[in-house]
Amino acid sequence: MAGPRRITRRAALGEVARVGGAACLAGLSLTALVSMASRADARALRPPGALPEDDFLSACVRCGLCVEACPYDTLSLAEWGDEAAVGTPFFTPRDVPCFMCKDVPCARACPTGALDREIPDIRQADMGVAVLVGHETCLNYKGLNCSICHRVCPIRNEAITLEKGEINGRAVVLPVVHSDKCTGCGTCEKHCVTGHASIRVLPRDLGLGGEGRNRAGRAT
């Protein structure tokens, strides 16, 4: 093993091509796997102050500092088979909703900016939006005055209001969510009395329709 190793240009180029090819192949396989595995389930919500999902996955290092900062054990890091990408923080409001701490300790704990640690107020949080999905199961739609979602909502009388309506000629009061006030904390979903919650928090892009263009190309 005396002296530096001598290699020919042909051998060097061959080696570079081989190693580069292997790296590209492995990189593309991992790319395929990652894009397959990083679709978050709509039931998994991110902590308050989270960047939009795509940016979030480029920033979150999965350290769990937000999870450990949460005083209510709302958050957990996803394991394989959970709704969110493995290792990332999420919560399932039907189990434990976000209690909307005024000082937002979870977001303040984030070292990478995946959660906005400068978030001024928990009311600016945007974890999702409550949507009354069960128009056939919601007790208020059946004419009862359940209104539990309205009563438990921490942004009382602003995020959910009760509006008079009429169904089949019967006067009813209906819970109506105001998306500009709702933070998606999930307290309503947690307390909904139906077996499967009639009101659910969904990520905003799923929960709200939106402006765009219809198929004829006209703005709607």
Binding site: G27, L28, R62
Partner: peptide, 11 residues
């Protein structure tokens, strides 16, 4: 770079 995600942490 390609996925815009912290790729290795998925596995």
């Amino acid at each position: 770079f390609l996925t815009g995600r912290i790729a290795w942490e998925f596995v």
